[in-house]
């Protein structure tokens, strides 16, 4: 039962990675990274129950918060660099 869930989550992570590679704009890549992080949390939780070792749940909890902070940090970084480059015409990095 857990195998089915973990396989589906791993496949979604691969889909998120392909979106990260294909993504035309930089925000598609941030979206893919955010999805990948959330799926890591789910995979950790499911594997915790798969192996019966429930201390993985603390890892999943910590990773859920860190992933959120990471996405916000990346967004702030893009926003500040966009303001610095405001003089030049809006080229897409």
């Amino acid at each position: 039962m857990y195998i089915v869930a973990s396989l589906a989550i791993v496949m979604t992570m691969c889909l998120a990675l392909t979106r990260a590679l294909l993504g035309p704009t930089v925000y598609d890549r941030v979206l893919a990274v955010n999805m990948f992080g959330t799926k890591t949390v789910l995979l950790l939780a499911v594997v915790a129950f798969l192996n019966g070792r429930t201390d993985f749940l603390d890892l999943a909890l910590a990773y859920a918060l860190i992933n959120f902070i990471g996405v916000l940090a990346v967004l702030v970084f893009f926003q500040s660099s966009r303001e610095r480059a405001a003089g030049k015409p809006g080229e897409q990095r």
Binding site: M11, L15, A16, T18
Partner: peptide, 13 residues
């Protein structure tokens, strides 16, 4: 839940 996660992933692609 696994199904919905997969559907979301396919949708994002």
């Amino acid at each position: 839940g696994a199904l919905f996660v997969l559907i979301g992933g396919i949708g994002a692609l």
